[in-house]
């Protein structure tokens, strides 16, 4: 981790967000909560640390413009969702975001870099609101709960959040830990906080 990364981490933690080294609590650490609904909600709250991280919310924005960096500033140059979430015809995501991160200049990349659909906007929402949203097929892309495990556990664009390249702090924990939390949350009844 270079200076830029460290600085980014500092900024993130100053803003109350997780730094690069922050770990996620394991599903087992919630075993002590006897009430399964409460346990499930607590598990989701932990999961919420990932979902509200700028690596996720920047591209699940409240409006049509993504955000950028650990400071979650509005994306520059100004880009907008467009019909397919890949940008307006004039400035498509893929024009700058290549198939992979390019660390010499700190530019993030992925083969299908794009915005989450508007109904999946998380930016600025509480963990409880995101939970309600994520369990509502009308607002989660028609996904079943098991689909969510696959989305969070396997989707390679989601995977990017834990390997975001130079200058950006990764989402808390690891992808596997996150997947385990999703599974534990579903197994405990998928309750919302």
């Amino acid at each position: 981790m270079g200076l830029a990364g460290l600085l980014a981490g500092t900024l993130a933690s100053r803003g109350g967000r997780d730094g690069p080294s922050s770990a996620l609590a394991s599903p087992e650490s919630f075993a002590g909560i006897a009430d399964s609904r409460a346990r499930s909600a607590a598990t989701f709250t932990e999961l919420g640390r990932v979902l509200t991280h700028p690596r996720c919310t920047n591209c699940h924005p409240a409006g049509d413009r993504p955000r950028q960096g650990d400071e979650a500033r509005p994306h520059q140059p100004p880009v907008f969702r467009g019909a397919d979430g890949h940008g307006l015809p004039a400035l498509r995501c893929a024009r700058c975001h290549g198939p992979a991160n390019f660390d010499p200049v700190g530019l993030p990349g992925h083969p299908v870099w794009h915005l989450a659909p508007a109904e999946m906007a998380w930016e600025g929402r509480s963990v409880a609101a995101i939970c309600a949203q994520i369990t509502d097929p009308a607002r989660n892309g028609g996904r079943s709960l098991q689909d969510l495990v696959a989305h969070i556990g396997d989707d390679s664009l989601v995977v990017w959040a834990w390997a975001p390249g130079r200058g950006r702090s990764p989402a808390p924990g690891t992808q596997k830990q996150t997947e385990a939390l999703v599974e534990a949350w579903i197994a405990s009844g998928a309750a919302c906080p």
């Binding site: 024009r95 390019f102 010499p104 530019l107």
Partner: peptide
């Protein structure tokens, strides 16, 4: 055709 910035691309 599309434009592409060259400063951030390998």
């Amino acid at each position: 055709s599309a434009t592409m910035p060259t400063c951030i691309a390998p």
